[in-house]
Amino acid sequence: MLVLNEHETERALEWLALIDALKAMFSAPCEMPVRHHHNMKVPGRADATLLLMPAWLPGQYCGVKLVSVYPDNHLSGLPAVQGGYLLTSGKTGEMLALVDGGVLTARRTAAASALASSYLSRDDASHMLMVGTGRLSLHLIEAHSTVRPLKQISIWGRNAANAEATATDARSKGFNAQAVTSLEEAARQADIISCATLATDPLISGEWLKPGAHLDLVGGFKPSMREADDAAIRRAKVYVDTRAGAMAEAGDIVQPLANGSLSAEKICGELSELVHGAAKGRNSADEITLFKSVGAALEDLAGAILAYETVRNT
């Protein structure tokens, strides 16, 4: 059985290949039960979340991800997301690979946002605002830059020092990146706004979104979490990674559904429908689009298969 550490997993999940793998998996006969979602008490710290995410391609591959989110892990100098992915044979159940779950989660999440952006953001989008300075931020910048000609990256975080550190890391990777202190000012100028935070109160106001903007909401994975307000939902064409997941777990969808700012019929499509052409993406340069992801087990399976086959064949 292959055991891939974080560095080996990252090298095996090159952006274009990963985005293509996700696109293919959204068209494949993948079976994906609703993920298990458990709240865990952590004495003296914020509650953690345990997620169990199975998926399989009949007769080919089967996999399950065990991942945890510990919001206060920064107090221990650790990433908030921890976990692993076990890939097995879909014919025999033989264990094939154990893939680093943190890297897999971060990269497939960013790749899903980039896949959505390829349908929903403007082709000429050049200015991206990254809201949040955690592990996902650099991945999202890299992934979005794979599908759009980004020339300017603005980075905002609640902690200015962390925003500057993230901007420094982005510049080291060749991006024209600057930390910003005014979230509103940056949001009003950005073509793509990507949010990867653990916010429970909206950070982005719909009033700030300029014509043609694309809003990518990644961070909120519980009904209590929120990154954009109702005005953003009302102004935008709303898309999700999966309806089943987003309508049950994403506060940015669940709360507007509950208060009437959004109806199920106004969710324009999910990723599989965009890939198949059953849902239309952006129709005009001035449309405002919004993509909300909570993560889907088929994305992890696609990434794990890519990592396994890439390493096995080298």
Rank of each mutant, 00 (worst) to 15 (best):
D201W: 07
L87M: 03
S118D: 04
K280E: 12
E14A: 13
V103H: 03
A196N: 13
A111V: 07
S172A: 14
V218W: 10
L183P: 11
S154K: 09
T92S: 07
G132C: 07
A187Y: 02
L217R: 09
V67C: 05
L274N: 05
E270H: 13
K173Y: 11
Y119C: 01
P223A: 13
S113Y: 02
V81C: 09
Y61M: 05
E273W: 05
L150Y: 05
E270F: 14
L16E: 12
C62N: 06
R135V: 13
I192M: 09
G303F: 09
R282A: 11
D169L: 14
L203V: 10
L298W: 03
E94P: 00
A179S: 15
G260M: 10
S113P: 03
E6D: 12
A278I: 00
K237G: 10
L150S: 09
R122I: 13
K65W: 05
Y119L: 02
A97S: 08
Y61S: 02
C62G: 13
L215K: 11
L2K: 02
A177S: 08
L4C: 01
V294W: 02
A307W: 07
D20I: 00
A160N: 06
A248I: 02
A163D: 10
A285N: 11
A161D: 15
A170L: 04
A125T: 04
E309K: 11
G260D: 07
V147S: 07
P43T: 02
L136N: 08
A232F: 10
S205E: 13
D20R: 14
I253N: 09
A296V: 14
T105Q: 02
V103Y: 02
A143I: 03
S182A: 07
G220P: 14
A110T: 04
E207L: 11
D100S: 09
L96E: 01
V64F: 06
L290Q: 12
R45F: 14
D216T: 08
L262T: 07
S263Q: 14
L209N: 06
L298H: 00
M32N: 03
G219N: 10
T242W: 05
R122K: 15
K91E: 00
A186R: 06
H7E: 14
L18I: 01
T166H: 05
D47Q: 14
G157H: 10
A302L: 05
H214A: 03
E142K: 13
E164R: 15
E6Q: 11
V254L: 12
A278G: 01
